[in-house]
Design a protein around this nucleic acid. Structure first.
Length: 377
RNA sequence: GGUCGGUUGGCCGAGUGGUUAGGCAACGGUCUGCAAAACCGUGUACAGCGGUUCGAAUCCGCUACCGACCUCCA
C-alpha cells in the first residue's frame, strides 16, 4: 500500500491508479540553459524513488519527464526575452547547442546519481505543433483570446465555470494585485491572464511560425500538452518542485481542463525546496551549488557527503572539524558576511567557541581544539 | 493572504510506537612540575494543551512561536 500526500486535496490519500496495474507519472524536468544543481537532484531523486517503489509494487509505470528548451521569460529586467536565446547570444552559438550541452550535462549528472531514466523524455521544442493545436482547442472552447498575434488564456471566463486557484488555494480577486508587470500586459484582458502563444519580439532567437504569429509557446503549455499526449487525458501522478505550484501547475490545470473539459491529474505531488543559509537555492539567485561541484567534493573528500548543507552552525557540532572546514573554506564565498554578523557571531557566543570571523576562524579550527583555545580572545 | 515545513537537554544534532543516539561546551576525576592534550565519569531533554494506545519525542487534533516558498525557477 502506498499513500501519497495530494496537494490538490491537502490530504494523505491511499494511492489507487486510474487503470489497475498501470501508472502514469509526469514530472517537471529541468530548464536546460545551465548546470543542474542540488535542487534538480532533489526533485529527481524524490520521483526516482517513487518510480522505483511503484515498480516494486508491481505496477507497470510510465514515467515522463520533460526537458524545457523553448522560450521562457527571464525576469523583470529583460522581460519577454527568451532565456535560452539570451544565453546563446552571449556565447555566440546556436541556441540548440546550448540546449544540447546542458541536456547532456543533466543526463550525466543524473547518471552519476544513479537515477533511472524516465521512460519518455519529451522536449518542448519537439512539440511545437502539438502545443499550437492545444492552444487552438482552448481558443475553440472559448477560454482564450487572440490579441496582436499572441494568444492569452481567459482566466476570468474559465473561472466562471471551473475553479482557477483550486490547487494553490488562491482567490482570483487576490491575484489582481499580485501579478508581476510583464511586457504585453496591456493587451491582456486581465493581469492574471497568461500566454498560450506569444508573438516574438525583435531579437528573440527561438521562434516558430503559427496561425497567429511568428513566436513561441507560452510558459505553461508544454506540460499540459506533453503529459496528456503521452499519458492520456487522465493520468495518475504529476510531480514537481513546490515553487512550481503557482502559477505553473495552476495554469496547467486550467489549460488542460479548458481544452479537454476534464481535469487530468489525480495526484499532485510537490517536493519541498533546498535552502542555503536560509534562502532558496535557485539558478537565478546565484546561490546554487551545481551537481558538478558536488561531484568535485565527492571525489576530493568523499566522506563529506553529508555536509551539503553548508550552514555555519552545523560544522562545529562534529568531530570532523578538519574535514568539515575544508569544505567550508572552499565555499566561504557563498556565506555572506551578514550571516555571520547577524547570526553566526551571536550563536558562537553561546557555544563558548572563539569569536572570529570565518576568515580567521578557519585556520584555528583546522588545528583542532588546542590551538582553538589558545587563540581565544 | 495562500502552500509546505520546523520546534529535542548550555549549543548542535539523530531518532517516525516500547533499550541512555552521538558530538561540542560544562562539571568532577586520572595523569601531569603548571597548563594543554589524552583518558574515565556526570546531564533522563523532546514547544503547550487535548486525543488514540497497554505504551508517544514518534500517530491524530487544536494553540503558540520560528522558517522557506508563492516572479523564470526542482
Amino acid at each position: 500500500m502506498l499513500s501519497i500526500y495530494n496537494t490538490l486535496t491537502r490530504k494523505k490519500e491511499i494511492f489507487e491508479p486510474i487503470h489497475p496495474s498501470h501508472v502514469g507519472m509526469y514530472v517537471c524536468g529541468p530548464t536546460v540553459y545551465g548546470d543542474a544543481h542540488l535542487g534538480h537532484a532533489r526533485a529527481a531523486i524524490t520521483f526516482d524513488l517513487l518510480y522505483r517503489y511503484l515498480k516494486y509494487l508491481g505496477y507497470k509505470v510510465r514515467y515522463v519527464r520533460n526537458i524545457t528548451d523553448v522560450g521562457h521569460l527571464e525576469n523583470d529586467a529583460d522581460a519577454g526575452e527568451d532565456k535560452i536565446g539570451k544565453r546563446a547570444r552571449l556565447e555566440e552559438i546556436e541556441p540548440m547547442e546550448i540546449v544540447q550541452r546542458y541536456t547532456n550535462h543533466y543526463h550525466a549528472n543524473m547518471a552519476q546519481l544513479g537515477m533511472l531514466s524516465p521512460d519518455i523524455e519529451p522536449h518542448a521544442s519537439g512539440h511545437i505543433i502539438e502545443q499550437q493545436q492545444f492552444a487552438k482547442k482552448i481558443l475553440e472552447n472559448g477560454y482564450a483570446y487572440e490579441m496582436n498575434g499572441s494568444v492569452y488564456f481567459d482566466v476570468e471566463k474559465y473561472n466562471r465555470k471551473y475553479h482557477y486557484g483550486k490547487l494553490s488555494g488562491r482567490k482570483l480577486e487576490d491575484l489582481i494585485t499580485n501579478t508581476r508587470e510583464l511586457e504585453g500586459q496591456k493587451e491582456k484582458k486581465n493581469p492574471y491572464d497568461f500566454a498560450l502563444w506569444k508573438k516574438m519580439t525583435p531579437g528573440h532567437i527561438m521562434h516558430w511560425p503559427s496561425p497567429w504569429s511568428e513566436g513561441y509557446p507560452g510558459w505553461h503549455l508544454e506540460c499540459s500538452v506533453m503529459s496528456t499526449r503521452y499519458l492520456g487525458e487522465k493520468f495518475d501522478i504529476h510531480g514537481g518542485g513546490m515553487d512550481l505550484l503557482f502559477p505553473h501547475h495552476e495554469c496547467e490545470i486550467a489549460q488542460s481542463t479548458a481544452a479537454l473539459g476534464t481535469e487530468s491529474v489525480k495526484y499532485w505531488m510537490h517536493n519541498n525546496l533546498i535552502t542555503i543559509n536560509g534562502q532558496k537555492m535557485g539558478k537565478s539567485l546565484g546561490n546554487a551549488i551545481s551537481l558538478n561541484e558536488i561531484r568535485f567534493f565527492q571525489e576530493a573528500i568523499h566522506y563529506l557527503k553529508r555536509l551539503m548543507i553548508l550552514c555555519p552552525s552545523v560544522f562545529l557540532s562534529f568531530r570532523h572539524t578538519t574535514a568539515v572546514l575544508l569544505t567550508f573554506q572552499t565555499r566561504q564565498y557563498r556565506l555572506r558576511k551578514k550571516d555571520w554578523n547577524d547570526y553566526g557571531r551571536e550563536w558562537l557566543c553561546s557555544t563558548g567557541l572563539p569569536l572570529h570571523p570565518p576568515g580567521r576562524l578557519m585556520p584555528l579550527l583546522l588545528n583542532r581544539k588546542a590551538s582553538m583555545r589558545l587563540m581565544m580572545i
